[in-house]
């Protein structure tokens, strides 16, 4: 009378439940970092690009000022830091996913029944680490080579922390969110990079934002980069520089709101559209 077989009759195996999303996610952070470091293109691009930008701006505009007596070097450091965050989050993630899909890495994750949350944890962890390293390098070069003053009070570093973190989160989830729509790895690389460059022009990274045409300012205000850049200015520029902003203030509330909204939009799009493989019919 002892029926030991599983209800289906298939060989009963006392198989423990598979590991949870967090455990796999932590393992994935290590894997993602290792893959990142072994991709010379990625490393050079995300670490050297911001520093080279700084060198170019430093030599072209060195000594000039804008608005209420703000040095160009200081003004543009904020934009470059914001761009760096976009680079290591949105751009790096969007391109990497297209490559992973092509290499068959994502197909494997699907076959293993990997929880999507574990994948997101891995990506986010990798982005946080690489962005932190990149910003540390950038700020070191800026303060040593261009005497850009680093904030001395805790309040500003807190602002730096939450602005950077929201930017990283938004960039990561949006990078994942666009991945189903960008096509092949080659197309993803061209499309995402092109979009990012245009966005940089619109968002006050290459020019003083307040001097851009109004329509450009309005377009830029829809996207996260403008807010990320403005948030960074509030960290690296003196308080009087707020008068030079379009709104005449740093608008921290709006910044948090817009970046937060993009995080939520990104998560919703990810949940609804993310697929391990392309074109299942």
């Amino acid at each position: 009378m002892t029926v030991t077989a599983a209800p289906t009759g298939v060989r009963a195996v006392d198989r423990p439940a598979p590991p949870g999303a967090l455990r796999i996610g932590l393992a994935r952070i290590g894997l993602e970092l290792r893959l990142y470091l072994r991709d010379p293109g990625q490393v050079v691009f995300s670490f050297a690009y911001p520093v080279i930008m700084l060198l170019i701006f430093g030599s072209v505009f060195g000594g000039e000022t804008t608005g209420p007596d703000v040095r160009f070097e200081d003004y543009f450091l904020a934009g470059i830091a914001a761009t760096g965050i976009m680079l290591t989050s949105f751009q790096a993630v969007g391109i990497a996913i297209a490559e992973e899909r092509e290499r068959g890495d994502l197909g494997r994750l699907q076959l293993l029944g990997t929880p999507p949350a574990a994948y997101v944890i891995g990506k986010a962890g990798q982005v946080v680490v690489t962005t932190a390293a990149q910003l540390a390098l950038l700020l070191t070069v800026a303060s040593l080579a261009y005497d850009v003053p680093m904030p001395s009070d805790v309040g500003r570093w807190l602002t730096f922390g939450w602005v950077a973190l929201l930017g990283i989160l938004a960039g990561t989830v949006l990078g994942i969110a666009v991945s189903p729509f960008v096509g092949s790895a080659r197309a993803a690389s061209a499309g995402i990079t092109g979009f990012s460059v245009v966005l940089q022009f619109f968002s006050g990274v290459f020019f003083v934002f307040a001097e851009l045409p109004t329509w450009m300012q309005q377009v830029a205000a829809v996207f996260p980069l403008k807010w990320l850049t403005q948030g960074m200015r509030s960290v690296f520029l003196p308080d009087r520089a707020a008068a030079g902003e379009v709104a005449g203030s740093w608008e921290h509330g709006t910044t948090a709101l817009v970046l937060g909204a993009w995080v939520i939009i990104g998560v919703v799009v990810c949940v609804r559209t993310f697929r391990w493989r392309r074109g299942e019919g």
Binding site: R15, P16, A17, P18, P19, R23, I24, A27, G30, L31, R34, L35, R38, D39, E100, E102, R103, G104, D105, G107, R108, L111, L112, T114
Partner: peptide
Amino acid sequence: GVVAQTTGDGNALTVRETLDHFAAYHSR
């Protein structure tokens, strides 16, 4: 367990690293 008909190009992890990593996805 599955072996698909097509194999991807492979990534920058070594054979051993790949297997060590994916061990974390299984309960045993």
